[in-house]
Every structure is written in structure tokens, then in C-alpha cells.
Simulated assay, not measured.
Amino acid sequence: MQYSVGVEYALHCLVYLIDVPSTESVGIKDLAEFQGLSETFLSKVFGKLSKAGIVSSVPGVKGGYRLSKSPEDISFWDVVEAVEGPKPIFQCKNIKDNGYLYREGCCSAPSFCTINLVMLSAEEKMRDDLRSKTLSWLNEELDRVLPKQIRENTRKYFSKSSI
């Protein structure tokens, strides 16, 4: 199982938007430049975040994006689902129904697949953990684990770019 790098970039960029006043926004160009990636790629990610209601776009020359919700109300799972979509990771193909005994009519296939149930249960536990972590939590954690100067410089970068 692997999430695309878009999820990681989305989470990083969303943290940068936390301190942006609600009357301002940050442009894709500034977010992409700071991350060292293409504006086109990040625009696609932010299009998905916008469609999910996580960010809102501000049109115009000084336009950009800002959070649509409080950081406490945006979970990691919200971001994963916005970027990756709601499709389950494990895609059961019911291969048990193709087994020899079922093909020969010796047995009738049960209505459920035990493997699928285990995989779906594991996915739900992962989703629950991702739902328990919010942008607010991430912001506090970054304040705790990163050098203070890095956090200050990041905030300065985005406060100057939104002006």
C-alpha cells in the first residue's frame, strides 16, 4: 500500500496555511516554490483539496488558497481521501469463487470472503488513526520537533508572500 506524494505535499502545504489570516491567501506559486515542485502538480492537488472543502480558492492577481475549515477540523484522513479518493486499498476479486471445489460444484461459496473482511478491518483501523490526527496536532508536533528558527522562517516566508 502506498499513498501518492501528493498527500505528503498537501499536508505540508496545509500546515503553512494555518497562520494565514482568514482575509488573506497564499498563491500556488509561493507554495510550489517553497516545496521545490511544479505549480502544475500542486495545482492539481489543491484542486482536489478545494473540491473536498478543505481549502477555498481566492481569485485574482493576489489570489491563492486558504483553509476552509479550522485546523482542528481537518484530519489526515480528510486529506488522504481528498487526494487519493475513497476507494479501499484492498480490492477483493473474490478469487475464492474460482477455486476447484467451487468450479466443480462440490461446495457452495460462502457469501463473504474472510480475507477481504480482515483487510477491510485493518484499513478501518488505519483510517481511524488518520482521523485522530489533525492539522492542529501536526502544527503542534512540528513546533515540538523542528528547530524554532525553521518554524519562524517558514511562517515569515508565507506571511511575506501573502502580502
Rank of each mutant, 00 (worst) to 15 (best):
S56I: 08
S56K: 15
S57C: 07
S57W: 02
V58G: 00
G60N: 07
V61F: 10
L67T: 03
S68H: 03
K69S: 04
S70Y: 06
S70K: 14
S70C: 09
S70H: 15
P71F: 06
I74W: 01
S75A: 09
S75P: 00
D78T: 07
V79L: 03
V80S: 02
E81Q: 15
E81I: 04
E84V: 07
I89A: 04
I89H: 03
F90R: 06
C92D: 09
K93P: 01
K96A: 08
K96M: 10
N98S: 13
Y102R: 06
G105C: 06
G105V: 05
C106Y: 13
C106N: 08
S108G: 07
A109Y: 08
S111M: 08
S111K: 15
F112Q: 13
C113N: 07
C113L: 07
C113A: 12
T114F: 10
N116G: 07
N116T: 07
L117I: 10
L117G: 05
M119Q: 12
L120Q: 09
E124D: 12
K125M: 10
M126L: 14
L130Y: 11
S132D: 12
S132V: 04
K133F: 09
T134K: 01
L135R: 00
S136F: 06
S136H: 09
E140L: 05
D143H: 09
D143N: 13
D143E: 14
R144Y: 11
V145E: 11
P147K: 04
R151D: 03
R151S: 10
T154Y: 02
R155S: 13
